[in-house]
Design a binder for these strands. Structure first.
Lengths: 144, 144
DNA sequence: TGATATAGTCAGTTCTGCTGACCAATCTGT
DNA sequence: ACAGATTGGTCAGCAGAACTGACTATATCA
């Protein structure tokens, strides 16, 4: 199976990582978290984030983000607190259960990086990351 | 914005490519093709492919594939013809409209590869593809 | 102060995928 | 040769995740 295009090659490994994280989190007992909920929860900053901020970073509409935050809130992973600086806004903050699951997810992320490094070797892994980061200049419309 | 994990870095560029292909195809007048329809149509072999085959290659269930082929058929991109070798099976073949759009899509794919190569340089692009291909060994559960 | 922009929600819809149940044809082992 | 298992495919029903459009409340700026 030769010449897959480069984008597909990336997609294969990216999806593998996402699936692996989701499965690990689920197996650790947090099985009421959907992939989309996880993706958005991963964006929440230490001091809390606004729904609109989360939406921007996850590249979805604020309406979609709002629904996902609802679900996260109902499941006890996050809380909405009023933003002291702006009465229109709320800050979405991690609840204790949210912090727990974040740790699990981060642990798996590190394990994946380790596995990939073991397979490729440290130098090729470094070059891979460097190249991918460089590529963002022309592929990431947000490029934080 | 530093240290995104490697999988996310891949996802950013992969999605950029998929969006670009879908937009180009849509702009070329094939605007009744959804991304999922495009993804499955891209798998159709010259001699035609079975629904189950398409499903396997696109990593979706045969039921989902069947629905997508329905839509493609209704929109005139493909035809279902009986398989002479197996009375249970049908072969999904590209209709003229399907061939047209395939050419457009392939042209965009090549343009993307060119753009990425221009940005990264030929040698880094080669190494990138090589590394990604190598990584499939541990991230692609199918690995054709 | 009035016009405009921003934060967020509500309602409704579309797309994409899933599971389960089923039918018809083919293949296999005795 | 034929009963049972496997394979190709469809139908029906459902769920998750995204979208657009319309709306309210607050902030900001000219």
């Amino acid at each position: 199976m030769a010449d897959l295009n480069s984008a597909l090659l990336m997609f294969i490994s990216a999806r593998s990582a996402e699936t692996r994280i989701h499965e690990a989190v689920s197996a650790a007992g947090y099985d009421d978290l959907s992939p989309a909920m996880g993706r958005i929860a991963a964006q929440i900053a230490e001091e809390g984030s606004r729904v609109t901020e989360l939406a921007d970073r996850a590249r979805i509409t604020k309406q979609s983000a709002s629904v996902l935050v609802d679900q996260l809130e109902r499941a006890g992973y996050v809380a909405r607190v009023p933003d002291p600086a702006d009465a229109r806004a709320k800050r979405v903050t991690l609840a204790p259960r949210g912090r727990e699951v974040q740790q699990v997810a981060r642990r798996v992320e590190r394990a994946i990086e380790r596995d990939w490094t073991r397979h490729l070797g440290a130098e090729r892994m470094r070059v891979l990351r460097e190249t991918l980061t460089d590529l963002r200049a022309i592929t990431d419309p947000y490029a934080d």
